[in-house]
Design a protein around this nucleic acid. Structure first.
Lengths: 197, 197
DNA sequence: GCGATTTTAGCACGATCGTTCTAGAATTAG
DNA sequence: CTAATTCTAGAACGATCGTGCTAAAATCGC
C-alpha cells in the first residue's frame, strides 16, 4: 500500500464550494482553487479529476448541504408551516448574504447548465426535487384542510418553484427586504385563500 | 475630415448581442465578436472601447429592443390585458427559444451584476422599470375595477416581478409549457380574485 | 492635390488559462 | 528491509485571453 491522503475531502469540497459559489465557474481558476484549498495542483487533479469534475462534486456537495438539508428540515413540519418555513429561511439567508452570492444551484442553472447537458440534467433534477417537496406538502395540506383547494396542487407547486427562483434572482441585484417579502407574500397568501368555502 | 464608418453600428450591436446572449460575458471572446461582426479588432476597439464597454452597449441595445419594447407595447393596453399579454409574450418567447438563451438581462443579473457595481445599477434600474410598469397598470386596474383590491398594488407588483424572474430561470433548465404556465397562472388568477366583494 | 482619419489584415505582447510533468521526500503494507 | 503509492513544491506545456501595434489602402473636407 501507500501513503494515505493527508487532506479531508469534505473540507476541500467546502473550500471549492466557496470559490465556485463566490465567483462562478468560469471566473474561478484552478490556481484560485489551489490557493484556497491549500493543497497542490497534483493532489487536486489526482483526487477529483479536472475542473469540471471538481465543480460537479462541489455542486453535489452544496446541494446536499443546503437544498436537500432544508428540505429534510421542512418536510417533517405540518404542511402549511413547512412551506412557510421554507420561504422564511430562504428570505433570511438571502438578506443576510452580504456578498450576494445567491444560490449556487440557481447560479449553476444560468451559467453552466445551458451549455452542458450533464449539468442541465443535474440542475433540473434538483429543481424537480424541490417541486416534489412542495407538491407533497401541498397535497397533505389540502387533505387536512390547512391549504386551500382552490387550485390543483401541481399548479401551486410550479408556482412556488417559480417564485423561489425569482426571489433568488432578485436577491442578487436588489436585496431589499420589502421587495423579497412582497414577491413571496402573495404566493403564501394564496395557500390560505378561500379556506372558508 | 476623414473616411467615414463603413459599418452599421446597430447591426454590429445586434451581432454583439447575439454573441453575449448566447454564450454569456466571460465565455464570449473578443475573437468571437470579431468573427461574428465581421469587422476588425481595431475597428471594434476604436468604435466601442474595450470588451466591458461593448457589453454595456450590447446590453443597452438588448434592453431597448426587448424589454422596453415589450413595455411600450403593453402599457397602452387595458390594465388587466396589459399584464396578461406581458406574461403571454414572455411564455411564448421562452417556449420558442430553441437554444434556451433565456433573457439577456436576467443572465446579466447573475453573471456580471454581482461583481460589477456599474452593471448591478443598470440591471437593478431595468428591474425597477419593469416593476414600475406592473405597478402603474395594477393601480389603473384597481381604479377601474378590473383588478382585485385584495392586496396593495406595490405588493402585487413585486410578486409579478418575482414570478417573471422565476419563469426566466425555469425556462433555461426545464422549458416545459406545463411548468411555465403553472408558475404564472396563480399570479394572474390572483389579480382576478375576489372581484365580487 | 493635401492632410486627416478610418479602414483593412494580421502580427505580437504579456498574462492567464487548464493541465501535465519532474523529482524527491514521506509513509505505508508485506 | 523493499516496493508501492501519495505527498510536496514548482516548473513548464500549449492554448487562449484582452489589448495594442504596424503599415498600407481608402475616403473624406478643403
Amino acid at each position: 500500500m501507500a501513503r494515505p491522503r493527508e487532506f479531508d475531502e469534505e473540507a476541500v469540497l467546502d473550500k471549492a464550494v466557496q470559490c465556485f459559489w463566490n465567483h462562478g465557474y468560469e471566473a474561478t481558476s484552478m490556481r484560485d482553487l489551489i490557493d484556497e484549498t491549500g493543497l497542490t495542483g497534483a493532489s487536486l487533479y489526482n483526487a477529483f479529476g479536472d475542473k469540471r469534475a471538481l465543480y460537479q462534486r462541489a455542486l453535489d456537495h452544496y446541494v446536499d448541504r443546503s437544498v436537500a438539508e432544508r428540505i429534510r428540515h421542512c418536510e417533517n413540519l405540518p404542511p402549511r408551516e413547512a412551506i412557510g418555513a421554507f420561504f422564511a429561511d430562504i428570505l433570511e439567508r438571502s438578506l443576510n448574504d452580504r456578498q450576494h452570492k445567491g444560490c449556487m444551484l440557481v447560479n449553476a442553472a444560468l451559467e453552466v447548465a445551458p451549455h452542458d447537458p450533464g449539468f442541465k440534467k443535474i440542475v433540473a433534477g434538483v429543481l424537480s426535487q424541490i417541486e416534489g417537496f412542495f407538491l407533497e406538502r401541498l397535497r397533505a395540506g389540502q387533505a387536512n384542510g390547512s391549504i386551500t383547494e382552490s387550485a390543483p396542487p401541481e399548479i401551486l407547486a410550479r408556482h412556488l418553484l417559480g417564485v423561489l427562483m425569482g426571489v433568488r434572482v432578485l436577491a442578487r441585484v436588489r436585496p431589499e427586504r420589502k421587495l423579497l417579502e412582497g414577491a413571496v407574500a402573495p404566493a403564501l397568501a394564496l395557500l390560505d385563500a378561500a379556506l372558508t368555502t
